[in-house]
Design a protein around this nucleic acid. Structure first.
Lengths: 336, 336
DNA sequence: CTGAAAGCGCTTACAG
DNA sequence: CTGAAAGCGCTTACAG
């Protein structure tokens, strides 16, 4: 493999100084057109392009935004990521993405690398393990010297610019929607009872049921997918217990499982049972029936996160902003 | 926001030299335990961590692998990415991911940045636009100075280490599977007729049909999802034309659409019609019915790609290797 | 055991 | 218009 050519070598070949080459490559008005042409031609011939690492070190700026994502497979996070990238690009930044696999250790690593010269600011969704351990020191440390925006998952110790989604409201809206359409007994299903977001969603559901005497609720939480499926099937076909007329899925997986269970037991949507949950939008559009879902507007989350970060990059002293994106129930084929 | 502290400042505070601080931080045996302790304590106090950019520049090595992915939303690519990361980590490398959105321009940008100091080698899936334009110069240029592994999409001009999937074979296997189960008339559906991979899959299908006189085939290609759905529905319910007894989906989207069409028209799987296609494995497992699918083993693709790259990093002169992963038909609920 | 010096590949204020 | 010098934040061979 050929070695990469440097400015120094080009300078030597052309018998000019390193500064002249550098200025010529950067189209400095100090340099004559003739010299510029000569330099650029040789640079092209040798395939020279400036070493980004050196440029970044010298300029103390990278135009990189670091992005930390817990899980690539999570379609909400993937969509947010996509929109972070699109928005960043329009503002002249590129993004460098690290994935943590929901692990605190990887999160620390990623933060450290990004903060130490690789990126000017960081947009992150903290990993689940960080919440479980309740250890936020590594994030706080980084935030002392680097602009930081968190998204999706909140914690009171994380007092930085953030973009989140009104998750409670979405659960309440779904419940209210069921209530309006005369549901009497809602089944809340979840495969993420152990996740902080899963806990909040369940609590919100429970509080709705407690506050509304004309509607009943039940909860099935189960991490193991096959068990979850079996429990849901058993419950919705059980004639001895009160009839379930609506299911609320607390996450994409449990929503799909509930849909599969309904389809397997041949219950009829709307007439016999309704379903609202979280979905992968892209997939849902291609399915029949399409599941009624809670839209969390990942595009808005991504866009806002970039805006907040770039603002704080420009004005260090600006106040902390906590944006909350409003969710919406999108009615498709599985509910009235 | 606090400024990041540097080695120089720590040296000044402790009244020692910059070299001593650097060596102490790196646990050099040249430095006394006492000094090490002093330095490390102060470093900790000030939250000092070495600037990665500077270290990379100095050491001329980053332990970064650059990864270029055309589309985050593509679940096959997302799984490959995940496994690239997992494998890279076990080998002591981290990955820096760029997304191109299937655009040639972004691909050029990403390659340039990664190759110019940010990464030691690159694993990439070339963008669709690159294939459409048949412009591979930017990739070839990079490959002259940087170790490169391509995956999934092949082209004769891209003569580098590569990992791909025996795509033709998978289509032939699916056809053969249908033939064995007594299908007489296979419908090939595709939403990616314009993509190179879509063209290959269709050609392979056509050649199978031509070579097998006891089985007929038809093709529906349509980029617009709603139109695709309508055309499939019309065709499978049309009693005047020969009955379709098997559908082969050429991509995830068309497979889902075919499944939706079958479900909408209430045709019975296996008895009346069969379906094999490409799926998002994770989702498919949660669905009912589960679609029979072509497994492309994204884990193997990711793992192999990293291995090839690291080998060529270690031994520059090693021969070009072209790995081909064998696909497998996984029979689920939609075929015999 | 500690430090001065050179250098990684660049950019830029300054001098000529 | 061109070039020498300093410096971005580090590491390391070498001298003491």
């Amino acid at each position: 493999m050929k070695k990469k050519i440097t400015i120094k070598e080009i300078a030597k070949i052309l018998m000019v100084s390193v500064s002249t080459v550098s200025k010529a490559m950067n189209d400095s008005p100090e340099i004559s057109e003739k010299t510029k042409k000569k330099v650029k031609e040789l640079a092209k011939f040798y395939g020279y392009t400036p070493n980004h690492i050196a440029v970044s070190l010298k300029n103390q700026s990278t135009f990189n935004i670091g992005v930390i994502i817990p899980d690539i497979q999570n379609s909400f996070l993937a969509e947010v990521l996509k929109n972070i990238e699109i928005t960043a690009k329009t503002k002249g930044y590129r993004i460098i993405t690290f994935f943590t696999g929901e692990k605190s250790k990887e999160e620390k690593e990623s933060l450290k690398i990004l903060a130490n010269g690789m990126a000017e600011g960081i947009i992150m969704c903290p990993s689940e393990e960080t919440f479980v351990l309740k250890e936020f020191e590594h994030i706080k440390n980084i935030a002392e010297t680097t602009s930081l925006v968190t998204f999706d998952r909140l914690h009171e110790e994380l007092n930085y610019n953030s973009v989140s989604v009104d998750d409670d409201q979405s659960i309440l809206k779904a419940c209210a929607h069921f209530q309006e359409t005369q549901a009497k007994n809602i089944l809340f299903v979840s495969s993420i009872g152990w996740l902080s977001v899963g806990k909040t969603r369940r609590k919100t559901f429970n509080s709705f049921i407690e506050n509304h005497t004309n509607i009943d609720g039940e909860v099935i939480e189960e991490h193991e997918m096959d068990d979850l499926r079996k429990k849901i099937e058993e419950r919705i076909t059980n004639k001895e217990l009160p009839k379930i007329d609506a299911i609320l899925g607390a996450d994409i997986e449990s929503t799909l499982i509930a849909n599969a269970a309904i389809s397997k037991t041949s219950l009829k949507y709307i007439d016999e049972i309704s379903l609202i949950g979280y979905v992968n939008k892209r997939h849902n559009e291609l399915q029949y029936p399409q599941i009624s879902y809670i839209n969390q507007f990942p595009e808005k989350v991504g866009e806002k996160a970039v805006e907040l970060l770039i603002n704080s990059l420009k004005d260090d002293s600006s106040k902390i902003k906590k944006e909350v994106i409003k969710t919406e129930i999108v009615v498709k084929d599985t509910s009235k």
